[in-house]
Design a protein around this nucleic acid. Sequence first.
RNA 1: CGGAGUGUAGCUCAGCCUGGUAGAGCACCGUCUUCGGGAGGCGGGGGUCGGAGGUUCGAAUCCUCUCACUCCGACCA
Length: 443
Amino acid sequence: MRMSQFFLPVLKDTPAEAQIVSHRLMLRAGMIRQSAAGIYSWLPLGFRVLKKIEQIVREEQDATGAQELLMPTIQPADLWRESGRYDDYGQEMLRITDRHDRDMLFGPTNEELITDIFRSSIRSYRQLPHNLYHIQWKFRDEVRPRFGIMRGREFLMKDNYSFDLDKDGARRSYNKMFVAYLRTFDRLGLKAIPMVADTGPIGGDMSHEFIVLADTGESEVYCHADYLDFVVPDASTDYEGDLSPIIEHWTSRYAATDEKHDASRFEAEVPSDRRIATRGIEVGHIFYFGSKYSKPMGATVMGADGVEVPVEMGSYGIGVSRLVGAIIEASHDDDGIIWPASVAPFHVGLINLKVGDADCDRTVANIYETLRRAGVEVLLDDSDGRAGGKFATMDLIGLPWQMIVGPRGLKSGVVEVKERCTGVRQELSIEAAMTTVIGAPEA
RNA sequence: CGGAGUGUAGCUCAGCCUGGUAGAGCACCGUCUUCGGGAGGCGGGGGUCGGAGGUUCGAAUCCUCUCACUCCGACCA
């Protein structure tokens, strides 16, 4: 992509409304634009990141055997009356009346809808288990949206729903999601710690929140420092095998959000120099809630013994749009964002320091085409701006690698390669620069 | 929903207290000099001062109402 054609409205000044660093950087880097309180447009740069995160989430879900579908944003109120939540959910639910005066709502979550889909299609225990997910926009009419897309009213969420015959099966489904979440956040370059959590309005009796430690997080959290060094299961993990050792390992140390925090246990179980008491960002939440929805909504299957039973369900959410903010909170410096390679909007920022100089133009065009043919996503700064501005913009948008081509270097046959995360700059031959940038691990 | 603020040019803000022809920096357009870490000169375009009502000879400024946004708290994924 040539920057001269790319819609990238970067801001030099920090917009007044932005308080936390991720919000400021997202606005400055031209990733999002606010439309109303807690409602944002995603501009091209931000949208690229959002899609990359979404794709990693999708791949890790698919690896567990979960299947993707897509449910609508607008739902009929009647389904929510069946579960009893139409009244319980309160003002956070955006209620809509259509032209025929039918009560509708913009979905804040999808338990009712998926249960309806399930019950009308599945009749026998032989058809179980199932785990269905979608990645769809949700709307929750927060009293006070804040922190940019971290607590928006409209947000993109991956939510899935497992259906099992019995509690053992539900436990296996829960464990799969637990492992998939560990892998997902790891691929996104985040250290997310599973913490015992309150179940909230969804209810149920088993729940973990996946928390990224950050001073700007909204939850107070307490955990054992050992978690920071725990090893995440690799891609060869067999989801059909026994996952319980992994779960046991990842729940072996103290970790709780403030709702579930027990100060005396914390002090008894964690040596004082290993105690972490800080704030965190909730990026995922998994629940097991049994028959909470299947029973009132009549989602039953015939068991092997000829007795009809409500299915055992769980639901699992990842805040896809929130993750964009969480990653920035976890990875930035004074100059801007530092994207992990796995979600970077482009892999390389190629800077032509002197547009119009025949040597520079030719070299840059060659590098650009070569990288593109090698499948590397390149953002080429082909503007005729000044060097300082180009460097500042490239640092701000945080691409993993910068290749800087200028007349001074070309005279001695070198270009500069800068690695954003370390700040290390090297002058290399064009070939060596190419190898450095292409050969860099994709995380 | 309680409390506290803020709305003036695309962005950051001054002007408001004490009413009298709407400003600065950045950005943008033209031009010249610059040109490797957010350069400088000259010239230029751009704002019904969030909206409505009121007071006044005269309102960005004072008063009333209203809308929007932000922050703290409660609530929540």
